[in-house]
Amino acid sequence: MEPRLNFYKTNPEAMKALGALEQRIARCGLEKPLVELVRLRASQINGCAYCMDLHSSDALKAGEDARRLATLSTWHETPFFSDRERAALAWTEALTRVAETHVPDAVWEGVRPHFTPEEVVDLTLLVSTINTWNRFAIAFRKLPA
């Protein structure tokens, strides 16, 4: 597989806009390990090799446990994730698969006890942003280094 184009060089203004979203995410109150789990899970669902490589590496650097990362795609079946993380991962999956799920009420009811309204908005921004990055990386064939 060959890269199609360098979207950073081709349209720096578009990438600047995505960078502004990342700056907001960096300032939000969501804990860094959770942010990386969400980014990695969405990237797994979308099949984005570049983002999976990047965010698994970032998660390990931030102190994430390799065992949790190895079982992230089966988080439903493992005891390694907190209730808050499980709610975030369910929200991530529902939003990433929005055309299929339409974000069911049960997922909404599951996220509400674990996140403040402001955090749910930040979590939604996080999920939406990583899905956007996945689409750029997949569409233009950005490859892991």
Rank of each mutant, 00 (worst) to 15 (best):
Thr74Pro: 07
Ala17Arg: 02
Trp75Tyr: 14
Glu109Tyr: 08
Ala14Gln: 14
Lys61Ala: 13
Lys16Cys: 11
Lys142Pro: 06
Pro12Tyr: 03
Ala139Ser: 15
Ala70Gly: 12
Ala137His: 06
Tyr8Pro: 03
Thr101Asn: 08
Lys61Gln: 12
Asp58Ser: 07
Ala87Tyr: 03
Ala88Tyr: 01
Asp53His: 10
Trp91Ala: 00
Ala62Ser: 10
Ala17Gly: 09
Pro104Ser: 14
Ala137Val: 06
Ala62Asp: 14
Ala14Phe: 13
Ala59Gln: 02
Ser128Lys: 01
Thr124Tyr: 13
Val120His: 07
Trp133Ser: 01
Lys142Ile: 14
Glu22Lys: 05
His76Ala: 12
Ala42Asn: 07
Ser82Lys: 03
Ala99Leu: 13
Asp105Lys: 13
Ala17His: 04
Pro79Ala: 11
Arg68Pro: 04
Leu125Gly: 08
Thr129Lys: 04
Glu93Pro: 07
Arg39Glu: 02
Glu36Cys: 09
Leu18Ala: 05
Val127Gln: 02
Glu64Gln: 10
Ile25Arg: 00
Leu5Arg: 07
Trp108Gln: 12
Asn134Asp: 01
Ile25Gly: 00
Leu143Ala: 14
Asn131Pro: 05
Leu143Ile: 10
Glu118Ala: 15
Ala137Lys: 04
His55Glu: 07
Leu30Ser: 07
Asn11Asp: 15
Gly47Leu: 04
Val121Lys: 02
Ala59Lys: 00
Thr101Trp: 08
Val121Gln: 10
Asp105Arg: 12
Ala139His: 08
Ala59Pro: 04
Leu5Asn: 07
Ser73Thr: 12
Leu37Gly: 06
Phe140Val: 06
Arg141Gln: 13
Leu18Pro: 01
Leu89Cys: 12
Ala137Arg: 01
Met1Ile: 12
Leu143Asn: 11
Cys51Ala: 09
Val103Asn: 04
Leu95Met: 13
Trp75Gly: 07
Phe7Thr: 06
Ala137Trp: 00
Leu69Arg: 01
Glu109Ile: 03
Ala49Ser: 14
His102Met: 11
Met1Trp: 14
Val35Phe: 09
Lys9Met: 14
Thr74Ala: 15
Leu123Met: 06
Glu77Thr: 11
Gln44Pro: 10
His76Cys: 09
Arg27Leu: 13
Lys9Ile: 11
